[in-house]
């Protein structure tokens, strides 16, 4: 039985509910209410990121290290740290990045970009090679095609393992373009294509499931905290 409507008196709940309805209004067609909500969202997000970026990155990692006494401005009781000249290096790299704003000096911006790209790529290479390549090979064939437990053959796991292996190999074969996909080889490649299609279908279904969950979440907010009928 549906309880009587009991509208919320909380301003935050009202703002959330009205913005939700404004965004939903786009389903009817583009309109000023949707545009308003869209602009508010973009503006608030940008401002939030800028403020968070300043207080969580620039302030502790740069300002407080170069000017430790500045910590007193934000929290008077906090202990003053030591001056850290190492912070001058990221500060210089950051300033070089800004040089891209001036066409004549823009080449200077390549140095910090190269530093960031090089260190990140070098550092991540090993991690990705291990986690996404070696361990994934182990996950595909590591347990063998006839896993057992307590001397008993686990036929379901075995079948699943076989399917994963066949799917992986045929999927890889589909992408081998140096050989014409005809005959038995072509049939394996077509099986690989089928596996890929099933995978894309599952991904799309999973994405739809996620979006519906968000829709349910919005309606829960509208019917619960705002209208008070849930």
């Amino acid at each position: 039985m549906i309880a009587a409507i009991h509208l919320s008196g909380d301003v935050q709940v009202w703002i959330g509910a009205l913005l939700t309805l404004m965004v939903f209004s786009f389903l009817w067609r583009d309109n000023p209410f949707y545009k308003f909500a869209e602009h508010v969202f973009v503006g608030v997000s940008a401002a939030y990121w800028m403020v968070m970026g300043f207080w969580t990155t620039l302030w502790p990692a740069l300002v407080l290290k170069l000017f430790p006494a500045a910590g007193r401005w934000s929290s008077p009781d906090a202990p003053v740290g030591a001056w850290d000249p190492v912070a001058l290096i990221p500060a210089a790299l950051g300033l070089l990045m800004l040089a891209r704003l001036w066409p004549r000096l823009s080449w200077l911006g390549k140095w910090p970009t190269a530093f960031a790209l090089g260190t990140t790529a070098g550092y991540s290479l090993v991690r990705y090679l291990r986690s996404d390549f070696l361990y994934q090979i182990e996950a595909t064939i590591g347990t063998g095609l006839a896993p057992t437990a307590a001397g008993r053959w686990l036929w379901q796991e075995s079948l699943a393992q076989l399917l994963v292996l066949a799917g992986t190999v045929s999927g890889l074969i589909y992408f081998v373009n140096t050989r014409e996909q005809r005959g038995a080889y072509g049939r394996v490649a077509r099986w690989g294509l089928l596996v890929l299609m099933i995978t894309f279908g599952a991904s799309f279904g999973s994405a739809v499931m996620g979006r519906v969950a968000l829709l349910v979440g919005r309606f829960q907010e509208l019917l619960g905290p705002w209208l008070g009928i849930l």
Partner: peptide
């Protein structure tokens, strides 16, 4: 734990 979009 992940979103539906990220699950695959």
């Amino acid at each position: 734990g992940c979103t539906g979009v990220g699950a695959p």
